[in-house]
């Protein structure tokens, strides 16, 4: 590749040649590395408000990491930084070997163009607290939308795959329904199917059960549990300590924009070392 690449050529650079040609980008090597997410000293400020104050963590392939903490601790913000819905203000964040949102070359960072960021996001599924299904499309349309529009999959193929995914979350008979006709739990399961339709390597869950009626939480957690058992790499921001204990491989407790404590879920939940963790857990457990 030539030295002075335009925006278009830069896209190829981030895709393939990061580790070999750009040593600065090679903190995380390519897909061979078993680290899916690497955050190094990640900071995020909204104006004067510092929400993230130096997050360091790693998520390995196939790992289910649960992130817990009081509201305002920055856990959702961190999750949104992972797929670059929020721009981090300092530090570095790699997903699957790609520096999110930037290209590093000659000791300098270059912002990626929107379309390049969009390409980086394809491998990262996200599930939101409020589902955010597209209300003007049927359930099937929601699941098919990204594969058809973004990946240019043939409609028949995308449809077949979408129906398979809907069956997997137990909702194939709702394929023709509109989101408003579904319960919250059903909507969230559709949202999971929609994210899975892009065949992501990483799934982000932003408090997926917080907006649900208590009796509907279980059906969503079951789907997530199945997903974890199939080996999906997951980062789950949640208040469901039971899920974290049972399904999580690791648990991160955040407060005030920093990681206060992390480790095996059982260890952290039953035997917290930090005072703040103890105080938090005593209120929620």
């Amino acid at each position: 590749m030539t030295r002075d690449t335009g925006a278009g050529a830069g896209a190829e650079g981030t895709e393939n040649t990061q580790s070999t040609e750009n040593p600065e980008n090679a903190v995380v090597t390519g897909p061979g590395d078993d680290r899916m997410v690497v955050a190094e000293n990640v900071h995020k400020s909204f104006g004067r408000l510092e929400v993230l104050r130096g997050i360091d963590l790693e998520v390995r392939r196939g790992e289910v990491m649960c992130v817990v903490g009081p509201s305002g601790s920055g856990k959702s913000t961190f999750l949104r930084c992972v797929n670059h819905l929020e721009k981090i203000t300092a530090g570095r964040l790699w997903v699957n070997g790609h520096l999110m949102g930037y290209r590093q070359r000659g000791g300098r960072l270059y912002e990626l163009h929107d379309t390049q960021v969009a390409r980086q996001r394809r491998g990262i599924g996200m599930v939101f607290q409020n589902f955010n299904l597209f209300p003007h499309m049927t359930v099937l349309g929601n699941v098919m939308e990204a594969p058809v529009q973004v990946n240019r999959e043939p409609r028949a193929e995308a449809r077949e795959n979408a129906l398979r995914l809907l069956a997997r979350v137990g909702l194939e008979e709702k394929a023709g329904a509109y989101p408003r006709q579904l319960s919250g739990g059903q909507q969230q399961r559709v949202a999971i199917a929609r994210a899975l339709a892009m065949r992501p390597d990483l799934m982000l869950f932003d408090e997926p059960t917080s907006a649900l009626d208590p009796e509907l939480v279980g059906e969503v957690l079951d789907v997530m549990k199945n997903l974890a058992e199939e080996g999906m790499t997951m980062v789950v921001v949640t208040h469901e300590m039971g899920f974290a204990r049972e399904v999580g491989d690791s648990l991160v407790f955040m407060d005030g924009g920093v990681v206060v404590e992390s480790g095996a879920p059982r260890e952290v939940l039953t035997n917290p070392r930090q005072e703040r963790t103890q105080a938090f857990l005593s209120k929620v457990l």
Partner: peptide
């Protein structure tokens, strides 16, 4: 705003 965020998270471009 959640609508465009969900679409962006799926890898859709601004135009899409």
């Amino acid at each position: 705003k959640g609508q465009s965020e969900a679409a962006q998270a799926l890898g859709m471009s601004r135009g899409q």
